[in-house]
Structure formats: structure tokens, C-alpha cells
Design a protein around this nucleic acid. Structure first.
Length: 307
DNA sequence: AAATGAGACAACCGCCTATCA
DNA sequence: CTGATAGGCGGTTGTCTCATT
């Protein structure tokens, strides 16, 4: 028991990773690569995005380039590293071991013993953890069967259909009957970041992550006008003076009286849960527009009224 | 249909080493 | 040199799925 040796955080999450956590980690690593794992949990909540409201009759239409900060990963860096190395990285091969791989493992194990990382280095796409797991279950079987003649028959992964390879459009090798490896091998995929539904990310743009050229279509980030809940406060778009607001995809909000055309945001959904929106310029060296939930300098609390 | 056991594999723990201030 | 920290690694445990009873 006790906390991880690698971190001082008392409130790190343990156990299986949720799809949302995976998405955050994938997005961060894809955009920034990895170098310092200890920084990953915190930074995984920050990403650049192009967001626009969905076309809807009651909606204030906006199109803006922003940096969205969502809560980082409540994991320690070590856990993030393990998750990426053993599960999320794009070149991982899943599925059963081929007879050739099996033979290689057996011979390498005979040479170097339980040096799983070393063995894994000879099997591209396989993880040390995976090989270790495979070996342990194989050993168990072998011990259990106690019949040398039956060893081959008991080895899983002897069906040759598993060794059929194909190369996807991104140049990645896959086994035909394997599951899709990770979502971003799909040219476009959908995921959900903490309640923002249907965020659609284009693969090509994803590869340009970190450049503010990513396009994310985030529905309902900005709430429809006229249906304000108690949680909703207006954002003063004028104070976001470096942000490129466009209304309806046609009209520049500059042409409007911005003080009267505030964008309303559900704070319960997006701010109380540590959603911030930064000005694009802030990311590029300017000041944060929304540095924290307690300092919503551009949220017009004083003008906040409800029917 | 429910209980149970086995297998597969994901994740954690603790130790070791490298690096850096 | 030394202590702190992060990363890498192997051993182990936990969890899920599925077949069997």
C-alpha cells in the first residue's frame, strides 16, 4: 500500500484507465511527444483547439481558435508512462503471438532469462509486459500439462491467420485480425472530453498538433442564447480581444457591440470542473485570459442575472 | 441462470540506476 | 560527494472475460 514512490500526490487515481484518460494521454503525447513523464499528468489537460458552436436556431454561433484547459490526468507520471508504453503507443501489436515470435521468445529466454525488456527489444511492437504475461501463462500451462509431447499443441497463437500483415495508410503494420490498435489510426475519430460531446478530430490535423492548426468541432461549448440556467454566466467577448470570434461563420463579432453580445457559458459544466478557455494569443506568449476558476477576469459576474 | 475456475493481460509495487543540483 | 528525483525494469497482484459445471 501507500502512494507511488514516484510522486508526492496523495490523490492520484489508480486502477484501470478510462477511455477519457486514454484520450487525454494520446492527445498530449501525439501533440507534444514525451520527455518528462512527471509533467504529463498536469499538461495533458491543455490543448489547442478550433472550436465552434453547432448550428442551432437558438445558439450564438461562434468560431474561435482557443486553447482549452481541461483537468489534467489524476495519475502519476509513472503510470502515464506505463500506460503509453504498454498500451497506447501506436506501434503496439496485440493479439496472439505468432509461432515465429514464440520461437524467438523461447530462444531468447534461454539465452538471457527473465530480461523481458531485452527480449521485447527483439520483437517489434511487443511489450516487455506482454511477453512476460505470455511467458508466465505459457509456463503455467507447461507445468500443468507435464507432458512434453503436448507442449506445442498447448501453445496459443499457432493459427497462421494471425500472422497476416497489412500496412495501413499511415505506414503502420498491423495483423489483419487484430483489433484497431488505437483510435487515431482511424483517419477521423470521435471522442468525448469531460462532457464535451462529439469532439471530432481529423487525423491529419491531429498530426499537426501543437501548432494551433488542430480543428476540433466541439458542440455545445457555448450554450444557446435564451436558455440560461443558474450555472451560466456570460463571457465578455470584448475582453477576448485577441481571439478571433466569428458569428455564424460569416459575421465578425467585431462588427457587433460586444458588450451586448456576450457568450454564455455553463460554469457548472465548464468552469467549476476547471474548464478554462485561454486566448489563443495567451498560448503564444500573452497573458492567460482565464488563468484560474477563481479569477475569471472576463466573466461578467456583475452582469450575471437570471430570469 | 448462477456460480466457479482458468486464462489473459492490465496495472501496481518496489528496487535499482542514472541524472542533476 | 550526496541527496532528491525520474525513469526503467521484473515480480506480483488485480480485474475482466469466457467456458464449464
Amino acid at each position: 500500500m501507500g502512494k507511488h514512490s514516484c510522486c508526492n500526490q496523495e490523490k492520484v487515481k489508480r486502477g484501470l484507465w478510462s477511455p477519457e484518460e486514454d484520450e487525454k494521454l494520446i492527445k498530449y503525447i501525439t501533440s507534444n511527444g514525451y520527455g518528462c513523464w512527471s509533467e504529463v499528468p498536469e499538461k495533458a489537460g491543455v490543448f489547442d483547439a478550433c472550436a465552434r458552436a453547432p448550428p442551432s436556431e437558438n445558439c450564438i454561433y461562434i468560431y474561435t481558435e482557443v486553447t482549452i484547459c481541461i483537468p489534467g490526468l489524476q495519475r502519476c507520471g509513472k503510470s502515464c508512462r506505463l500506460r503509453w508504453i504498454n498500451y497506447l503507443r501506436p506501434d503496439i501489436r496485440r493479439g496472439r503471438f505468432t509461432p515465429e515470435e514464440e520461437q524467438l521468445i523461447i530462444s531468447l529466454h534461454g539465452a538471457v532469462g527473465n530480461r523481458w525488456a531485452h527480449i521485447a527489444s527483439h520483437l517489434p511492437g511487443r511489450t516487455d509486459n506482454g511477453i512476460k504475461n505470455y511467458w508466465n501463462s505459457w509456463i503455467k500451462k507447461k507445468i500443468k500439462s507435464s507432458s512434453p509431447a503436448s507442449t506445442n499443441m498447448e501453445n496459443p497463437g499457432t493459427d497462421n491467420q494471425n500472422s497476416q500483415l497489412f500496412v495501413d495508410k499511415f505506414g503502420q503494420n498491423h495483423f489483419l485480425n487484430q483489433e484497431a490498435l488505437i483510435p487515431f489510426h482511424d483517419p477521423s475519430f470521435t471522442f468525448d472530453i469531460n462532457g464535451i460531446p462529439n469532439i471530432h478530430m481529423d487525423q491529419i490535423l491531429l498530426e499537426q498538433a501543437g501548432t494551433l492548426q488542430n480543428q476540433i468541432q466541439a458542440e455545445e461549448i457555448f450554450q444557446p442564447a435564451g436558455s440560461f440556467s443558474d450555472n451560466m454566466v456570460p463571457i465578455d467577448v470584448q475582453s477576448c480581444n485577441n481571439t478571433n470570434f466569428v458569428k455564424s461563420g460569416e459575421m465578425d463579432v467585431d462588427s457587433l457591440q460586444r458588450q451586448e453580445d456576450n457568450v454564455w457559458i455553463d460554469t457548472q459544466q465548464y468552469f467549476s470542473s476547471s474548464y478554462f478557455v485561454w486566448d489563443q494569443a495567451a498560448q503564444l506568449g500573452g497573458e492567460e485570459i482565464f488563468p484560474s476558476t477563481s479569477n475569471m477576469g472576463t466573466i461578467l459576474e456583475s452582469n450575471y442575472e437570471h430570469e
